[in-house]
C-alpha cells in the first residue's frame, strides 16, 4: 500500500495513508533484513523497504502491512 512519510510540526516521523485517512506517528523503528519495520501509534506494523540515505522527506513509498 502507498504510504507517505513526513515529519510533523513536532519533528516526529509520521506515516500518512491516504486511502485509510490514517495519520499516525511512528513509535518504534526496527531494522530487519529487507529494510525496516515501523510500529505506529495505533498499533499497526508496516514493512518499509530500504530507503535511500539521507532520508528525503516527505516521500511516498510502497509499504506492506504486517499487523
Amino acid at each position: 500500500m502507498k504510504v507517505m512519510l513526513r515529519q510533523n510540526s513536532l519533528g516526529h516521523l509520521v506515516v500518512y495513508v491516504a486511502k485509510k485517512d490514517l495519520e499516525e506517528e511512528v513509535v518504534k523503528q526496527e531494522v530487519v533484513e529487507e529494510g525496516k519495520v515501523f510500529t505506529l501509534a495505533n498499533g499497526w506494523e508496516l514493512a518499509i523497504p530500504t530507503l535511500e540515505e539521507p532520508l528525503r522527506l516527505p516521500q511516498t513509498i510502497e509499504a506492506k502491512r504486517l499487523a
Binding site: M4, R6, Y16, A18, P58, Q59, T60
Partner: peptide, 9 residues
Amino acid sequence: NYISRHMEE
C-alpha cells in the same frame, strides 16, 4: 490537504 501534501513532496 491533498494538494498541500503533494506540494510538500
